[in-house]
């Protein structure tokens, strides 16, 4: 099944689930007396949210359409990508493996999705140099996706024979058991490069610190703000927050990702504009603009 069909399934599922949840909400909220919640198909109190989403989504669709037509959409080069290439290069020079840790969350986390895209590209680079790529995984759902990403990477590099399924390893569902086992891999197999890209939680410093102690070059990236400080101190380069998504869009040049990134840039521009206008008006005592953002 190609990407187009998968996207269609995802879209239909999302619409169907949203409709189902709305119907359930409407049916089951048979209100006991005195209830303060009132369920409708459309909540006029949140009209501002609807308008904002409509603007941002229209922009995303417009950018996607432009990307599909082959129009060039500029994204600045993400410095972290050079660091990934450098890390893989060093592993090649040393003839050692590369350890790719795609975070601990499931496929329903967009960070894991972005990580899988980057994994595919890393696999493509690694396949050319004939060094092992080890991918330890915490969530069962992620295993088939990672297998597919790495297989595709090796295939694109013209080296399907070099793909080793056993290196995509399901470790454990338990967070710290997973961390302990990955630490074990770092210490025993001594990869020359550790790439930690995805959604990380309390295990981030345990992994990054162990990796640093082995002397491996480390590149990390996550959108989990509270874990970024550990990566910043323990890794050679860190992709901060949205840079992870930008990197996946930059690498894949996939119209949907590019369009989404450009759309989110537009949203940021609107927010900056709103903050500038709002702050000026608030400072001179004008309040109506701020009220536009109040949600009941």
């Amino acid at each position: 099944m190609n990407n187009r069909k998968i996207s269609l399934v995802i879209l239909i599922s999302a619409i169907w689930l949203t409709l189902c949840s709305q119907i359930l909400l409407a049916q089951e909220a048979a209100p006991p007396t005195g209830t303060k919640f009132d369920y409708h198909w459309f909540d006029t109190n949140r009209l501002n949210v609807f308008i904002t989403l409509a603007i941002v989504f229209s922009a995303i669709l417009w950018f996607i359409a432009r990307a599909k037509k082959g129009k060039s959409l500029f994204i600045r080069r993400i410095a972290g990508l050079d660091a990934i290439e450098e890390a893989v290069g060093r592993a090649t020079e040393m003839g050692k493996s590369v350890l790719y840790i795609p975070g601990i969350h499931d496929m329903n986390d967009i960070q894991t999705v972005a990580s899988m895209i980057i994994l595919g590209n890393v696999a493509k680079t690694i396949a050319r140099y004939d060094i092992p790529l080890i991918v330890p995984i915490r969530q069962p759902f992620v295993v088939p996706v990672a297998e597919e990403a790495v297989r595709q990477g090796y295939l694109s590099a013209g080296r399907p024979d070099a793909f080793m399924k056993d290196n995509i390893r399901f470790i454990s569902d338990e967070q710290f058991a997973y961390a302990a086992a990955v630490n074990g891999i770092m210490l025993r197999e001594r990869p020359a490069a550790n790439l930690l890209l995805g959604s990380f939680y309390a295990e981030s410093l345990l992994l990054a610190e162990t990796g640093a102690s082995t002397g491996a070059i480390q590149v990390a990236g996550t959108a989990n703000i509270h874990q970024l400080p550990f990566f910043v101190v323990a890794c050679d380069y860190t992709l901060i927050g949205e840079e992870l998504f930008a990197a996946s869009a930059y690498l894949s040049r996939e119209p949907k990702l590019l369009g989404s990134l450009k759309g989110s840039d537009l949203a940021k521009a609107l927010i900056v504009l709103a903050i500038i206008i709002g702050t000026i008006l608030e400072t001179i005592g004008v309040k109506w603009f701020t009220k536009l953002f109040v949600v009941q």
Binding site: A29, P31, P32, G34, T35, K36, F37
Partner: peptide
Amino acid sequence: IPLMKDVKNFD
């Protein structure tokens, strides 16, 4: 459960 008798949702 008596405590849950008048608890339908978060109301």
